[in-house]
Design a protein around this nucleic acid. Sequence first.
DNA 1: CGCCGACTTGACACCAATCAAGATAAGTGG
DNA 2: CCACTTATCTTGATTGGTGTCAAGTCGGCG
Lengths: 246, 246
Amino acid sequence: MNEVQVLRRAPSPGPAMRARPFRSAADRRSRIDNLLSPAEQEELTGIATVLDYRRPGIAIFAEGEDAHFLFAADKGTVRISRHDANGNRQILSFLWHGDIFGLSENGRYINSADTVNPAIIYRFPLQRLRRLLAGKPGLQLHLLTKAVHDLRAAQRQVLVLGQLNVPQRLVLFLHDLTQHRDIYDRTAGRLSLGIGRLDIADYLGTSPEHVARAFRALEQQRILKRRGPRTVDILRPEALDVLTSR
Amino acid sequence: MNEVQVLRRAPSPGPAMRARPFRSAADRRSRIDNLLSPAEQEELTGIATVLDYRRPGIAIFAEGEDAHFLFAADKGTVRISRHDANGNRQILSFLWHGDIFGLSENGRYINSADTVNPAIIYRFPLQRLRRLLAGKPGLQLHLLTKAVHDLRAAQRQVLVLGQLNVPQRLVLFLHDLTQHRDIYDRTAGRLSLGIGRLDIADYLGTSPEHVARAFRALEQQRILKRRGPRTVDILRPEALDVLTSR
DNA sequence: CGCCGACTTGACACCAATCAAGATAAGTGG
DNA sequence: CCACTTATCTTGATTGGTGTCAAGTCGGCG
């Protein structure tokens, strides 16, 4: 019934939180643990609430809503999306463990966020966050860095959608996924997408049918083998690197 | 011969500069004069160099170069672009009077910038800018605001490229252009593009031929009339608003 | 006035969107 | 745990939109 459950409210951080404070895989994304010192993380967890989203497709916040919180993904996958006038959905990014989200402009969320699969999310009240930030100008610079990083990523997606055809877009998407240790077992070559065809389609600016076709094409080229709709074995990882542009 | 000419170097700002310090049209873009108080602008012009780019297609900086400057467009049009592995160009944005650019990450420019037509550009040394910023934490927040704004714009472009067909993209592009008083005479309905078909194509993620077709389609719908390749009369401005999404 | 580059238009081939149907996987309740 | 139900995924067929090549026209600049 209750689709979101508050696991912990932590003015005095519990031991489980301190035990696993956003440790992340080494990759190029801007993670909260890259941006903050251990002491700063401690301070942040002190004002955090832990939310447990049990089911996929649950809204975390919607574009245009008053922004009162900043979020960080811990477990599961979150999608950031925007809708056009016709109601068509464009997924702007997927977020995993350690990624922070909830960007606002003029006090309102710019985009929508909801769960792709069951997820655990940390929530930070913006007001208390601002009080923390005021004292430390360094933290503000970190947020600027994060915004610049996201900007760069968004511009990369513009390049992808403007220049590449669907199979090429899928190759780049799979390449990005293999950078996440959580979902890609490099030695076995097994990639656990955890994302449905419709979500992939809305991210790549195409249809689920065409995503399926693109998967088949890559399978015929012996680049991967589909084990299930959400599980593939990457047979030739180097084939995913060829297009790796900026 | 000399394609770029330094007009003024202004440790002591000349009268011409104080006379016209980034006065801008009222629109939704993030302009330097919106971000700064008059006193702050005065301070900035003190460290600025004014550059005169006489011809179109001149590089201001290129992606990957060491970033030593921040820029602001004064006259003319600047394009921000990125190239993929095959050398295909995607234009990310066009900039006009008052727009600031030169975003860097890890000390290097993320994108390339060059002139679309003859332009006058203000250049600010980052090092001295940083010294100015250090004293005023408010200015840093302004830059964050600017980055967030650009991020939002880039994400909008993702939506456009992912969801709309070419005629729809052109409609949205023309709508954006009509927001600039410099190039759009609202009473006469005359729009002076100042941008070639190839640049429009690389911005909309299509070919010059298809841009021409889209213009013809809009003309057949009596939405506009082509007076020349770079000049159109908007006959039904409200028709450009219909698609105005976020 | 003449040249050259930019723009426009048409024709064609290809890629992608959509509709429809069948196969597979996942979730649900007995 | 199994059977049923439902959603998701895959594949094929068809249609429409877009990229590309080629040729002709227009406009700007010397």
